[in-house]
Amino acid sequence: MTAEQPIHKQPEPTKSELEILQVLWAHGPSTVRFVNDQLNEQKRAVQYTSTLKLMQIMVEKQMLDRDESSMKHIYSAALEEQKTKGLLLDRFVDSMFNGSASSLMMQLLGNKKTSKKELQAMKDLLDKMEDGKK
């Protein structure tokens, strides 16, 4: 018999932590300076020291890994992108739409202009899901 592994609950990133993770997911392992520059270009004005402190906290929370083997520390995402996005989406659907993915889709389709190409992709996905259930 094997002992069961303890379940390690993945931490839920805050909005600021998610912004940092998105930079690292898109660009790979990076310095604090690079991440801070990206945040300033993409999001809003952020002080270098604020980014550094938050990334240090994220290492403590096991959201980031830090390579200290060179003079410039290199940070990388310790959380998997798809798993994290799936977790956040599940929590969002649960809290905002009582767990109903179809209610979320109806809201999205009602609020945005959806192109014919996007609609066709959704239809194709639904067809594949239907075929998988048969």
Rank of each mutant, 00 (worst) to 15 (best):
L39R: 03
S30T: 02
Q82K: 12
T114E: 03
L126K: 06
E17W: 12
W25P: 01
P29K: 15
M55T: 13
L54G: 02
K112A: 03
M96T: 08
E118F: 10
L21N: 01
K116E: 02
N36S: 12
E4M: 11
M96F: 12
Q107T: 12
S30D: 05
N40C: 01
D131G: 13
V93D: 05
Q62A: 14
M105W: 00
L88G: 14
E81L: 09
Q22L: 09
Q56R: 13
K116M: 04
L109K: 00
Q47H: 15
E4R: 13
F92G: 03
K83C: 02
T49A: 06
K53Y: 04
Y75C: 15
P11H: 09
K133A: 13
S76Y: 02
G110F: 00
G132Y: 01
S70D: 11
Y75L: 14
V23E: 05
M106Y: 05
G28D: 15
M58L: 15
F97K: 06
P11E: 14
V59K: 11
K112S: 04
E130Y: 04
T2Q: 14
Q120L: 14
E80L: 14
K112F: 01
S102E: 03
H8A: 03
A45T: 02
M63P: 01
K61I: 15
K116W: 00
G99Q: 06
P29N: 15
K113Q: 04
D127N: 15
M106T: 10
K112N: 10
S102D: 02
I74R: 13
